[in-house]
Design a protein around this nucleic acid. Sequence first.
DNA 1: GACCAGGCACATC
DNA 2: GATGTGCATGGT
Length: 212
Amino acid sequence: MADLKSYYKDLLDHYGPQRWWPAETPFEVMVGAILTQNTAWTNVEKAIRNLKSYGLLDPLKLHEIDQDTLALAIRPAGYFNVKAARLKSFMAWFVTRYGGEVERLKQIPAQRLREQLLEVKGIGPETADSILLYALELPTFVADTYTYRLLTRHGLLSEEAGYEDMQEFFEKNLPRDRALFNEFHALIVAVGKEFCRPKARCEQCPLRKRLP
DNA sequence: GACCAGGCACATC
DNA sequence: GATGTGCATGGT
């Protein structure tokens, strides 16, 4: 059985605490989770800055605003038309069902909330889990493309593994600890940016000594 | 200029 | 059910 704790310790020693999610409020996390889909975070920061400066970083405001106007505001994040539509569909759900109140989301059991989020067009497993973990502080492990490359290249999962397989791998081999899941995923992104690019540089990875 | 980024939905076979 | 494609800006 893989000693995930030692992977975690190596990463934490090497990179230090990542202090995710970089946002001021849970709602900002949710918006950022949609904006960062397949996009560099630096681009998302610009889009969030725009939303803040226009006073739009608010569930009711985003629910009311015209989609094309929203697209202009989030332009730096890329895929702006797609993401404007996704933000609108998320707000339609969040505002009409929960009044745009984060506290009301917290009343719902995690499993049911995850299912509801996945029904929102534009929210897939990673975005849903990011919202659960980083906005609502629920102990759900977030997987992503870096996680996939790391697990498959280290021979911990086969290349046929899907999202749920990755998530299950972590959740079954670690204590269900919100803070641990938070930091671990962020550290995987940190090591991923440096060493888990499509063109691998695994020979210099800080986890190299754990490769078979 | 090529490559890539903290995905997802949809078309097509 | 698997596989391919569109979406787009901005940093390296």
